[in-house]
């Protein structure tokens, strides 16, 4: 969202923004708001539901950036699966309706620091990378499935595969952990 604001601020058409830019900005604000509520609300399930709003807002931003494929994958994986898993976990812990006074930890300043550092790093990297790049909405689609696939498997195969190794490691770790528990019984 900050990226959106800065991108808009740096845009040559800042004083006469197009409809898409305005929409991008507004959705960005909503997403930012939802994200802030997610981490500040004391109601556990509400936090998860606000996370849905934030992730959905991100998907809309991807759409506005013409990255259709990424947008739908975002919805499919984050909203459809991760949040459902999250809610499943919350329900298993019998998350109460209403505020949970103990839903806070002393890690607040540390978390804020980490979040700020991550945000600064991301904004810096992204702004540096796409400083003056503009998406030509009338030209060829730049975020279609075909283009995304080609880019992913032509230019970024190594990071992609490295990522899958990471997932594999997580999977193996999970199996090892669950097996250990069984032996302990």
């Amino acid at each position: 969202m900050i990226l959106a604001a800065q991108a808009a601020a740096e845009a040559p058409g800042f004083l006469s923004p197009s409809g898409v830019e305005i929409a991008f900005l507004l959705v960005g604000l909503v997403t930012l708001g939802a994200a802030v509520v997610t981490v500040t609300t004391r109601q556990l399930v509400h936090a998860a539901l606000w996370l849905v709003v934030a992730l959905g807002g991100l998907a809309v931003e991807y759409l506005l950036l013409t990255a259709e494929f990424i947008a739908w994958v975002q919805v499919l994986i984050y909203v459809g699966s991760v949040v459902v898993l999250l809610l499943f976990g919350l329900m298993l812990t019998k998350a109460p309706i209403g505020r949970s006074p103990d839903a806070d930890s002393g890690n607040r300043p540390v978390a804020l620091g980490v979040a700020l550092a991550a945000a600064v790093a991301l904004v810096w990297v992204v702004v540096d990378a796409f400083r003056t790049t503009w998406i030509d909405l009338d030209g060829a689609v730049q975020g279609s499935t075909e283009v995304t696939g080609a880019t992913l498997f032509k230019h970024w195969v190594l990071p992609f595969e490295a990522l899958s190794v990471l997932l594999l490691a997580a999977l193996v770790g999970a199996i090892v952990l669950s097996r250990k528990k069984e032996q302990a019984r």
Binding site: F69, W72, V75, L76, V79, L87, T145
Partner: peptide, 16 residues
């Protein structure tokens, strides 16, 4: 464009 992903993603949201 990404029709399959769209329909499956959105159907998953319904369960929410």
């Amino acid at each position: 464009d990404a029709g399959i992903f769209f329909v499956l993603a959105v159907m998953g949201v319904g369960v929410l």
